[in-house]
C-alpha cells in the first residue's frame, strides 16, 4: 500500500499527487514511469514520474482525468492509499552530451516535459521550454517549468494568455531565428509529437519523443505497447518510452491509440487538454 502524501489540483482536470514509495524514489530518474493499480478491481496503468524526493521517499505523479482509472485515482485524498505502485520502469532520459535543448510539452504532457527539462537543466544544459495549452485556464506547472529553463514560452491555442499559437509555431520561429539545438525533446498528444517531429526533420534537428502507449505490465511481458521505430518493433516499456521522433511509424502509432476505445475504461495520460 502506498500512501498519498500530498494532493494538489493543478487545473480542473489535472491533479498532482506525491505518493510514498521509498524504493521507487530511491531509483527514479527523469523519463521513467510507474505502473499503478488503485484498488483490487482497478486497471493497471502507466504514469510517468513527474518528480521525486529521495529523502522523503516520495514520487510525484501528475494525471489528467480522462478515463475510469484516473477518475478513480482522483477520488483519493491525502492519507489514502494506492494499492499497487511498481517502478521505476523504462529507460531514463538520455541527457549526456546535450548542450542546448528545446523541451516541448503539450497539455498534461508538460508533466513529463518538466522532469526532463529539470534533468537537462541540472546537467548544465541550456534549456528553452515551450509549452502549449488550449487556453489560459488550463496552464499547469508554469512556475516549475520556469525554474528549470533559461526561457519559457507558454502558448495557448486561443491566445487567452497573450501568446496565441501552437507549440510548433513557436518552435518554428526559434529555429527560423537560427537557434541551434542539439536536441528537441517533445512530449504531449501523439498528433503534437508527430507535428514537432515533422517540423524538426526539415531543420535536421535530432528529436526525441516520449511515447505513452497502452501497457499492462511495464516489464516487456505483454507487447501491447509496441511501437515501430525505424522499421523495428520496440516495446515502449523496456526499450523506451523515449524514441527518435524521426523514426517512429506515426500512422501506426495514431491508430494503435484507439485500441480499446470500443471497450473503453481505457485511461491514458494524454488526452487533449
Amino acid at each position: 500500500m502506498y500512501r498519498v502524501l500530498r494532493k494538489r489540483v493543478l487545473n480542473p482536470s489535472v491533479t498532482w499527487m506525491d505518493v510514498e514509495a521509498p524504493l521507487v524514489a530511491r531509483k527514479a530518474k527523469a523519463g521513467q514511469f510507474v505502473i499503478l493499480r488503485v484498488n483490487e478491481t482497478g486497471e493497471r496503468i502507466p504514469l510517468t514520474i513527474a518528480d521525486y524526493d529521495r529523502e522523503k521517499g516520495s514520487v510525484t505523479i501528475i494525471f489528467q482525468k480522462v478515463g475510469g482509472t484516473t477518475r478513480l485515482l482522483d477520488t483519493l485524498e491525502e492519507g489514502d492509499y494506492i494499492l499497487d505502485f511498481a517502478g521505476p520502469l523504462g529507460r531514463p532520459t538520455e541527457i549526456e552530451g546535450v548542450g542546448k535543448v528545446a523541451v516541448v510539452g503539450g497539455g498534461v504532457g508538460c508533466a513529463i516535459a518538466y522532469p526532463a527539462a529539470k534533468a537537462f537543466y541540472n546537467s548544465g544544459a541550456w534549456v528553452d521550454m515551450i509549452s502549449g495549452f488550449r487556453s489560459r485556464d488550463l496552464i499547469i506547472l508554469e512556475d516549475e517549468m520556469a525554474a528549470v529553463s533559461r526561457r519559457l514560452f507558454v502558448m495557448t491555442d486561443d491566445g487567452s494568455n497573450g501568446s496565441k499559437g501552437f507549440v510548433t509555431d513557436k518552435l518554428k520561429e526559434l529555429l527560423e531565428q537560427g537557434e541551434s539545438y542539439d536536441l528537441v525533446f517533445a512530449v504531449g498528444p501523439v498528433p503534437m509529437m508527430r507535428a514537432v517531429s515533422e517540423l524538426t526533420r526539415q531543420y535536421g534537428v535530432k528529436t526525441v519523443v516520449s511515447m505513452n502507449p497502452i501497457m499492462i505490465d511495464g516489464t516487456g511481458m505483454c507487447g501491447g505497447c509496441r511501437v515501430t521505430v525505424g522499421g523495428e518493433v520496440k516495446f515502449a516499456c523496456v526499450d523506451g518510452p523515449e524514441f527518435d521522433g524521426h523514426k517512429i511509424d506515426w500512422d501506426e502509432a495514431v491508430k494503435r491509440l484507439s485500441q480499446y476505445r470500443r471497450e473503453e475504461q481505457n485511461c491514458r495520460l494524454f488526452g487533449q487538454i
Binding site: T41, G42, E43, R44, G68, T69, L72, I216, D217, M221, C222, G223, G224, Y260, E263, E264, Q265, N266
Partner: peptide, 22 residues
C-alpha cells in the same frame, strides 16, 4: 500477444464485470 490477452483476462480479471480492465 497471447500474453497480453491472457494477462488481461487472468491476472486483471477482464472477463468479470466488476473489474475495470478492458
Amino acid at each position: 500477444s497471447a500474453n497480453e490477452f491472457l494477462t488481461r483476462i487472468n491476472l486483471m480479471k477482464a472477463y468479470r464485470d466488476d473489474y475495470d480492465t478492458p
